[in-house]
Write a protein that binds this DNA or RNA. Sequence first.
DNA 1: CTGAAAGCGCTTACAG
DNA 2: CTGAAAGCGCTTACAG
Lengths: 361, 361
Amino acid sequence: MQKPSIKDVAEHAGVSTATVSHVINNTRYVSESTTKKVREAIKALGYIPSAAARGLASKQSRIIGVVFSDISNPFFTSVYKGIEFELSKAGYELTLANTGEQDEIQEVVLNTMLSREVDGIIVAPTGKASEAIDQIIQMDIPMVMLDRRGPYNHTPLVSLNNVQAAYEATSHLIADGHKKIGIVVGLADVDTTKYRMEGYCKALEEYKIACVEEYICDGNSRIEGGYRAVENLFQLPDPPTALFITNNLMTLGALHAIRDLGLKCPEDIGIIGFDDHDWADIFSPPLTVIRQPTFRMGSRAAGKLIELLGGKQEQDTDTADEEIFSGELIVRGSCSTQCHNNYFNNYENLDRVKGGIADIS
Amino acid sequence: MQKPSIKDVAEHAGVSTATVSHVINNTRYVSESTTKKVREAIKALGYIPSAAARGLASKQSRIIGVVFSDISNPFFTSVYKGIEFELSKAGYELTLANTGEQDEIQEVVLNTMLSREVDGIIVAPTGKASEAIDQIIQMDIPMVMLDRRGPYNHTPLVSLNNVQAAYEATSHLIADGHKKIGIVVGLADVDTTKYRMEGYCKALEEYKIACVEEYICDGNSRIEGGYRAVENLFQLPDPPTALFITNNLMTLGALHAIRDLGLKCPEDIGIIGFDDHDWADIFSPPLTVIRQPTFRMGSRAAGKLIELLGGKQEQDTDTADEEIFSGELIVRGSCSTQCHNNYFNNYENLDRVKGGIADIS
DNA sequence: CTGAAAGCGCTTACAG
DNA sequence: CTGAAAGCGCTTACAG
């Protein structure tokens, strides 16, 4: 037997398709007895509405597109769960696509989303300008950006205060007695890279530590990149004593490299990572990290999108609608060197010596 | 301006909508000059076909549904990437849903997929019978099961040889000199739990080691469960010297517990985990695990589905179509005790003593 | 080589 | 309180 349509249900119940549609969608009053007949017919026939037909007729897909660089990155997985939590409550389905941080792929996936007529989009855009994004903006499809905004300054954004977080991370290393601090940075095109580097520099500056160019090392945002970065740093004549590694994947690579180089953490090298992980706590020593409120960031982005979908359009204001979360420093013990118990072992002391750390040693 | 439809394109190009459709889909010959006109019109208007309309007219959504228990489990993430790799080559889009291993949620998500009229489904089913799955089967929607099959014996399956893998894991612990071997098992409803336990028992039996009931501990398939399981095991008067932990999340929890209990691995407790991870290698000591070929499993499941979609229907054979992969033992060093250098330190020796390990000690 | 037109299964003014 | 019917934007026999 064929899959039943709304017409079959209507006939079976002895009503019009309009009535069936209205009881299904609860979109106008239908008498109790009629409602009952319709529900029974639906049950009897095993009727399932066609989302395609519905979408075509109503011009709403009730699908939200989510575009991330890589769902196997736990940061995005957790954000995704936040989005899913919020959006499924509101009756939306999600479609997910990975760009792998590649502009061409981003173009392709956004276009298929356009073709799917998604009702809204949440995207962590690559750094470059995108025709597809231009088109989405021009078509007035609700969109919120997550983690970064690329070259789009007038789209709502949910992200972390990366400057502050990186500043805190670096300050923490300084407080632990480090003066030779390397940083492993991600892809240059991605906003967060710039901001995390900025926070790092700001902290060094504030504590009058010279910013050594060789200590800034590209890790490509990926595991292998983190590995190679650490290898390179330790080929320097005067390698750093501590490392700020600016995302979770590079941290993994860095830890691999540290092990392969036969180094001990934190004795030989202090480590602070970006992004928290389930395994960070059981690493030896447990990893000190900056934690992002990933789930909340995801659900907030979804919330913003729902507002836009509801038509609360005050978008024509000039101020970009931003929601910036704070990173949280989780101190676990991968930073402290032998200096751990010296004068610089905590923020209180740090505050006192601001402006002259290089003098005391 | 409104979003252009195929009609607008047809008018702009001075042809029929049929012709436009055919050049887009390459589905019948169209003269070069006409083709050119159509393509130009498409470009000029920025035309994007409506997937909903297309789906409604063609009765094909070109969407494949993927139903997993939890995409934040790296096992599923990696499988998903394999699926994505294969299916996107074939021009399909994916829609993903998590069940959290809950029957009711599985029911809901499968029904929305039915409503979306997905062309096919890949599912890691919960253990219980499901009305939605019954319906999918009855509607002849191509479906392949992944990791497990639940109570459905006539659906194609891609999975691991869990008995063999668990047998190898346990044998490895035995070869490393352990005789008091605990196992942390997952949800009872899930097939893999049963099979992994079976392999464990088989190995013990083979080496004449008594199977101690207290050493079999429920870990609920989750991090917290793994934690509690280890806590419980170490409250036994005679706790095990080694643990086989049967999935990645429980392993994480177990490692946490081991740390919190102040135990050292492998000195105090040997560990072998199920599923490999990026961090397994940098744990101290690096974790010995059974690795599943996750990406290949995913792409193979997708391949099977594509075959079914292509209508190669030889399904009415009675033999269930199964593809069973082998797990790979990755030895890293979290199992060996002080016995590491004794008689039982490798498989060669193990073979010689088969049938009487308990006698030698 | 191409077109006219029915039909896919819904939603939604319009009408009563 | 409910129905008749147009229309959403495609695909696809059918026809020439």
